[in-house]
Simulated scan of single mutants.
Amino acid sequence: MRFTHDPRILAEFPQLTATTLHVHGVTANPDVTRTARFFLDRAAARLAGGPESELPEIAAWRRAFTQMGLKPTQYRCAPEALLRRFRKEGTLPSIHPLVDICNAVSLAYAIPIAVFETDQVVGDLTVRHAGGTETYATFAGETETPDAGEVIFADDFGNAHARRWVNRQSALSAIRPTTSSVLIVVEAMHETGPTDVAALRADLVTALREHWNIAE
């Protein structure tokens, strides 16, 4: 499976920086509390300096959402939504050990991290504008059709694995207890994105290897 950004997306958002990890041998057994706490503490330290909306990483995605014609306070990028919840509650719900680590790292860097079960992706995965015929599976068990022109993660079968780019992931390829192979996608829009994404990737690989014998 290949992951790409459509040339039109790259032309519209030249500031985009992205990286991926293919991780195999995932299990749902490890206790990742200590690993995740390290990154959550880093997120808390950043939030102590001001609200998440003022972080340059979040501000850059807000500008991107505005460019896409979305209200950034109505549709928030995933790390902004997570940071808001973390600031209010001081913790995040546990979903799956791998997702818990990815969420914690995402909060520490304020950069979106998407995790897809590769067995549920048909063919290649591309970030592109929707044509208006794709299908999106909600976590409530409903099926939606993204609006034409909306930025989605689409596979070759027309499944939309995320809507509004980094706003909302599909239930179709969400990580399950039986998941063993995943694709992790990291995307940033801010000025120091290349440096920060490289650092995030290194931290994430180290954190994952504390709990799984993974092959990238």
Rank of each mutant, 00 (worst) to 15 (best):
V182E: 00
G193W: 10
A198S: 11
V166K: 01
V166T: 13
T195P: 01
E191Q: 15
N167V: 15
V186D: 05
S173C: 07
R164D: 02
I175T: 07
A160D: 12
Q169A: 14
E191N: 06
R176D: 03
H161K: 03
A202S: 14
L172N: 08
S170F: 02
S180M: 04
R176L: 09
S180Q: 11
A171G: 13
V182I: 15
T192Q: 15
L183E: 04
A174M: 10
G193T: 04
Q169I: 04
E187L: 04
R163P: 09
N167L: 11
T178I: 13
A171E: 10
E187M: 09
T192D: 14
E191L: 14
T178F: 05
A202T: 14
L183R: 12
M189R: 09
G193S: 15
P177D: 11
L200W: 00
V186E: 00
R168Y: 02
R164M: 11
I175A: 07
V166F: 12
P177R: 10
R201F: 11
A198V: 03
D196K: 11
A199F: 05
N167Q: 12
D203Y: 00
R176Q: 15
R176M: 07
S170N: 07
E191F: 10
T179V: 10
V186L: 11
H190K: 06
A202R: 12
P194V: 09
I184F: 02
V166E: 09
A171L: 06
R168L: 15
S173N: 04
A162G: 07
P194M: 08
D196T: 06
L172W: 06
P194W: 06
T179C: 10
N167R: 06
V185R: 14
A188S: 11
V182Q: 05
A199P: 05
P177Y: 13
T192G: 05
A160R: 05
Q169N: 11
W165V: 10
M189P: 03
P194L: 06
A198T: 15
A198C: 04
I184N: 07
D203Q: 03
L183P: 00
P194G: 07
V182Y: 00
A162V: 01
A162N: 12
G193P: 00
A162C: 12
I175E: 09
R168N: 14
A198E: 12
D196Q: 09
V182A: 11
A199L: 11
E191W: 02
M189V: 10
H161F: 02
H161T: 09
D196N: 11
A198R: 13
A198K: 14
E191K: 13
S173I: 05
T178A: 15
T179M: 00
V197P: 07
T179H: 05
V186F: 00
N167M: 12
S173D: 12
A162D: 08
S180P: 00
R164I: 10
G193Y: 02
R164V: 14
I184M: 00
D203G: 08
A162R: 07
R163N: 04
V185K: 09
T192V: 03
W165H: 13
R176K: 15
T179S: 15
A198M: 05
T179R: 04
V182P: 02
R168G: 01
P194A: 06
I175M: 11
A171M: 03
T192H: 12
T178C: 08
A198F: 06
R201A: 08
D196C: 04
T179N: 08
V182R: 04
L172A: 14
P177Q: 14
S181W: 04
L200G: 06
R163M: 12
